[in-house]
């Protein structure tokens, strides 16, 4: 196969864009976190994120978030085409600041949860989930 200069440049550009994709995905997650926290510092502890270590089917991955004293919990999947998953806002009659649901994961990645506590601080928890079959099939 003979490549002229123009084709070489095209190929090289394509390769570098492909290499940047994972970085861009996590940048989108960081943006979503910043939008939620308003740039405030995010601590650790007080938030439990329960997710399976290995999910055979990325279409339904059961997760549970539990953060006593939280007013809202944001859940993100950093490796999905769009990282946002769900935001839980707890009202005055919430018995406990916990919720469980089922989410889609495109592949093996970190699931991130950020809780906004009633005193205005933020805490974060993350868990890696290994996915055998991704849940964004086309």
């Amino acid at each position: 196969m003979n490549l002229n200069r123009r084709e070489m440049i095209l190929l090289a550009t394509g390769a570098s864009v492909a290499a940047m994709l994972p970085f861009r995905a996590s940048a989108a997650a960081d943006e979503a976190i910043n939008a939620f926290t308003g740039g405030a510092e995010v601590g650790e502890g007080g938030l439990t994120l329960t997710a399976p270590e290995i999910a055979e089917n990325g279409n339904t991955v059961p997760i549970e978030v539990d953060a006593p004293g939280a007013t809202a919990i944001l859940v993100l999947a950093a490796g999905n085409p769009t990282p946002a998953v769900a935001t839980f806002n707890f009202g005055p009659l919430a018995g406990a600041q916990m919720a469980s649901t089922r989410i889609r994961l495109a592949g093996t990645q970190d699931v991130i949860a950020i809780a906004k506590m009633s005193d205005g601080s933020f805490v974060r928890a993350s868990k890696e989930v290994k996915v055998t079959i991704g849940g964004c099939g086309g």
Binding site: A86, F88, P92, L93, A94, A99, S100, T101, R102, R104
Partner: peptide, 25 residues
């Protein structure tokens, strides 16, 4: 009175399922 208010994104699975807790006064 509000118990829970959830914003869903496309990453929520088919047939959305939620489990949560509520206080009944």
């Amino acid at each position: 009175q509000n118990v829970i208010d959830v914003t869903l994104e496309p990453a929520i699975s088919t047939n959305p399922y939620f489990e949560f807790q509520a206080t009944v006064p």
